[in-house]
Amino acid sequence: MGITIKDVAKLANVAPSTVSRVIANNPRISEKTKEKVREAMRELGYHPNFIARSLANQSTQVLGLITPGSTDVFFQNPFFPTVLRGISEAAHEKQYAVQLTTGQTDEEIYEGVVQMVQGGRVDGVVLLYSRVEDRVLQYLRERHFPFVMIGKPYEFVEEITHVDNDNFRAAKDVTEYLLGLGHERIAFIGGNRELVVTVERLLGYEKALSDAGIALKEEYILYEEFLKEGGQEAVCELLALEEPPTALVVIDDLMTLGVLNTLSEVKVKVPTDISVVSFNNVLFAEMASPGITSVDINIFDLGYQAGKSIIQKVENPTEPTKRIIVPYNIVCRESCSKI
């Protein structure tokens, strides 16, 4: 016969109901009692039956994660595994599992979300992105299904709990950093123009140029996928201009890696010939040659705060709407110099 809650209660010298509350991570149970019960569970090799608990509570104890389009972007770009670690950490603390839905097209992802929600597979959803127009967002709002977003909503900002950086300010800051080094011909390589993060960072870039009295050049603004290939294509187009830029603001480190590779191939030196700043500060920003000056947006914390927020909404439907702003900082390395 298997180990039961009663066995754990006996070893921990508590009531069986206390063991149940510890398993549910009830905040009314002291940390000392929780640790005593968990130690007894470890000693006896007891593992709670979460399926039975879910049936009893009419809860799946599962969070759904929705990706921004193509699976290529999700699995190649280090941003997403890092944000996923943050969400998973928050879920683990409350004994939730996570379920990821991906697809090659927006339609596939939308259908995956519908199956998740209508099939009762998840208690709540985290959108790992924010789009200008999004069927998934509309669907979740219409069904009043618990969800939070990573990124600022394009609409209904006051009605949707979201976790974000101040992307406008961050892009303005890095553009002003390049202006301070004497650069005036500064280009912007953005991601998908339907993503709000691209819109916000572009606005920050434009504001910095405007404040400096520098006219905006449309040919200096390009949009690509958040992939290394996107950075390669963009920099080739910029270098072909009659008056190429002397500095680049690139919206993502993986794209920046493509930029650096291409510049190296055509013998354009960084930062001697062109300066580059980027976003995300993933590991290879430090390991690249030269090291990439990058905005550290605290990706893990974005995920962790989103995970905590969706669990709060699931467990308390009256939880107020929140906007959580995660701080950022510019990490200066060798990819920028005075003109």
Score class of each variant (00 low, 15 high):
G191W: 03
E206K: 14
E225D: 12
N165R: 02
E242W: 06
L203E: 07
I221N: 00
Y177V: 08
Y177W: 08
C236Q: 14
S130G: 10
A212Q: 09
A171G: 01
I214T: 06
G190D: 04
E219Q: 14
S130H: 13
V197R: 10
V197F: 09
E155I: 13
K228T: 12
G231M: 07
G191I: 15
D164E: 02
Q138F: 06
L222G: 11
P244E: 13
P146H: 02
D211E: 12
E243V: 14
H144Q: 12
L239F: 10
L227R: 11
R193K: 10
P153V: 11
Y129P: 04
D123A: 14
P245S: 06
G191D: 02
E233C: 14
E200I: 05
V157A: 05
V196P: 05
D123R: 05
A234H: 03
L137M: 15
E142P: 10
L127Y: 09
A240K: 15
R201P: 06
H162K: 03
I221E: 01
E133M: 05
R135L: 13
E233K: 09
F168S: 08
V148D: 07
I150T: 08
E133Y: 12
Y154L: 08
A240N: 13
T161V: 08
V148C: 08
K228P: 12
A215R: 15
P146M: 06
L241W: 06
V148N: 05
L140T: 11
A212D: 07
T246Y: 01
P244L: 05
E142F: 02
H183K: 13
R201W: 06
G204V: 06
K217I: 10
L203S: 11
L178M: 01
A208Y: 11
V126K: 01
E224Q: 13
D211R: 13
L127W: 13
E176H: 10
R185N: 10
